[in-house]
């Protein structure tokens, strides 16, 4: 049953041009970025590993932003277009509805990843880091997009409004994104270390630095970073579960 929801929503994304625009815009961003980076690499202004690290951050950052926007609308649209009632009257369970919506956003992420692959291959040519780059972008991107999607779906059940869900999600994205951009020097103190451990995006960027710049590609070498990201996903699942309980208590009509 969740497959039906997934199929319906993916078809909607394609035929309403949402995914087309996102994929096109991210492809243009990657094109401009890669051209600039490779021009600088040819001038030896930028080391290839630094270039790959920058590209990895852009891929993860752009994909997260698109996932947040998509996830913010994918459930709230059912409330705002008044189609939720018909869905809840049918045999479809709330769990299947959530799974279907979740899979739709993850499919959009998969498409964005597919768009990024040629850019990664071209940029990493000769470095030997291509497979590791692709594998870790897939792993971290899936975990982060998955975690954020679950969190945003939880907000959707609480707010039932696209505008409010999107605003809160973007503020949360900024809250994790800005500290992740701080240099290692700024995070060298105990408080900075706490931020590094608690912030999943910081963990992803630090891990990618570890892999692409320092060549520590083994999973064991990045275990602590993975644990931080996995912890975020668990928190997002709990938040969603609580939000669904609140929704169940109120019912379709919000007082």
């Amino acid at each position: 049953m969740n497959k039906l929801i997934w199929k319906k929503d993916i078809t909607a994304e394609i035929y309403t041009w949402k995914s087309a625009l996102w994929l096109l815009l991210t492809a243009i961003i990657y094109s401009v970025t890669c051209y600039l980076l490779l021009t600088n690499k040819e001038l030896s202004l930028l080391d290839q590993t630094e270039m790959l690290w920058l590209l990895a951050k852009i891929i993860i950052g752009a994909s997260l932003l698109v996932a947040i926007i998509d996830a913010s609308s994918i459930l709230t649209v059912e409330f705002e277009q008044e189609t939720m009632e018909d869905l809840l009257i049918s045999p479809l369970s709330v769990k299947d509805l959530i799974i279907g919506k979740f899979l739709t956003v993850m499919t959009v992420w998969a498409l964005m990843y597919a768009v990024a692959v040629p850019y990664v291959l071209v940029s990493s040519a000769g470095s030997g880091l291509g497979p590791a780059f692709l594998a870790y972008i897939a792993l971290y991107g899936t975990l982060m997009v998955g975690g954020f999607t679950l969190f945003v779906l939880g907000l959707s059940f609480l707010y039932r409004s696209f505008k409010n869900t999107l605003t809160t999600s973007l503020v949360f994205y900024l809250a994790v994104g800005i500290p992740a951009l701080f240099s290692a020097t700024l995070k060298a103190n105990p408080f900075g270390s706490i931020i590094s451990v608690a912030n999943p995006l910081d963990a992803v960027f630090s891990s990618l630095d570890n892999i692409l710049v320092d060549y520590h590609t083994a999973l064991t070498a990045n275990a602590t970073y993975l644990a931080s990201v996995a912890g975020f996903v668990v928190v997002a699942v709990v938040f969603l579960a609580v939000s669904v309980k609140v929704f169940d208590r109120h019912g379709i009509v919000k007082e």
């Binding site: 994929l23 051209y35 490779l38 690499k41 040819e42 040629p118 850019y119």
Partner: peptide, 20 residues
Amino acid sequence: NPGAVLPVALGEPILIVMFF
């Protein structure tokens, strides 16, 4: 065409547009 990126940099956006 630094790093042979041009076919990808130009080609991918065009392919996406054509697909949709």
